[in-house]
Write a protein that binds this DNA or RNA. Structure first.
Lengths: 209, 209
DNA sequence: CTCAGATTGTGAAAAATATCACGACTTATT
DNA sequence: AATAAGTCGTGATATTTTTCACAATCTGAG
């Protein structure tokens, strides 16, 4: 794909920049400096300028960045001009919350299909999102990204079925560390780990940097 | 606090190691090598050895690590011998899911109090966890850690009230980047950002490396 | 008791990320 | 037109994190 890949750390911040630029634009702001952005997204301003610079000279010296231009640039960089469909695997507590929780207000990613093993749930719709049986993964059609919110002991087996059915990116909310071909991208969000790490930092790092 | 702080990247992996060691121990395994651990938690074995080495020589050359010993060591390092109480702020879709979802089966962190502004919710209990009114933050008592699952536009104001009431660590699930004194530790889990970043990686980084 | 095989702990090197600091340029003001 | 103030883009540097690679050491078998 892209030959000159930007640093991963930068890539992970792009959606954050994008969201904040959207806010600014809706507020009618025309220009913004790296310093202002920095205060809003809590990222050092030099880091922001460096991040942007990987895409070329997007700003003007002595002026800052044109909000509309920058927003348009990131919109296409992040493929926000078209809708990206995502599947949710596991309609339990957390999965249901994601279906209801409108966390994608400001972007063009949509959960459009859900899957579960429970016959009580299969066939129903939650917020217009149909729930299919986990054995009907061909229903995924062209979806490439899946959110995993199912019991940890099923994660590995089902992840592999997902891959067989064309999934190439997985956002894994289970504590399991799944084993998939290395061409598949897996991001982990592990609530217990995050909490424990936070507690550890409080005990051992508090105050001074 | 601790004088010789371990690297942050290491600290974030400790809970992961801890959980897996727990699994091993329950399976009755007596010893484990960094290579085995590596395959299970998907972290390079040299990184694991380096991580452990910050705490001294925990293993034996030619043998590996004693599961029980290592587990005990991490238990006390991560303060898992005592319960850490956590408050949940915002009993909406996501918050309710956290109250119900038992993601802390294998550790000693517990959500023990919840707060919300909705009078319908205040006074009730969800899974034995009482819901207090958001104005009754003195009910926090000695709790130091809060999980933020409320509307983004309230995040900043309420985060500051939390800090006034003794909270020193915040796990922020809202898209808002909150402004708090720098002695307060904030970790962000931003679902939309994570998904967008994943999609970006799929488009621009796939396959190699 | 010896030796082959396994595995740690770590110095050193590499890679990735963040930050400093300043020249170059833009804008706005007088 | 000149000048002051603001801000980018980036070379250089600092910091953090990961990885390599191997001597030292332990285990277990015969």
């Amino acid at each position: 794909m892209d030959q000159n890949k930007i640093p991963q750390a930068t890539a992970k911040r792009l959606p954050l920049y994008y969201r904040f630029l959207n806010n600014l634009n809706q507020q009618g702001k025309k220009r913004v400096s790296s310093k202002e952005l920095s205060e809003a997204v809590k990222v050092d301003s030099a880091t922001i300028r460096r991040d942007f610079s990987y895409f070329g000279a997007l700003g003007k010296k002595g002026y800052g960045y044109n909000v509309e231009y920058l927003l348009g640039f990131f919109r296409s960089t992040l493929d926000q001009h078209e809708i990206t469909e995502v599947a949710l695997i596991g309609v339990g507590n957390l999965g249901t919350a994601f279906l209801n929780y409108n966390f994608m207000k400001n972007n063009n990613i949509r959960i459009t299909k859900a899957f579960d093993a429970d016959p009580e749930k299969v066939g129903k719709e939650i917020r217009d999102i149909p729930v299919y049986h986990i054995d009907d993964l061909e229903k995924l059609a062209n979806i490439k990204v899946a959110i995993l919110t199912l019991p940890a002991d099923e994660a590995d087996a089902i992840a592999n079925k997902l891959v067989e059915n064309g999934i190439t990116g997985i956002l894994n909310f289970t504590p399991a560390r799944i084993t998939v071909p290395k061409s598949i991208r897996v991001h982990h969000i592990d609530l217990a780990v995050e909490l424990q790490a936070l507690v550890y930092f409080l005990k051992h790092y508090s105050l001074e940097k």
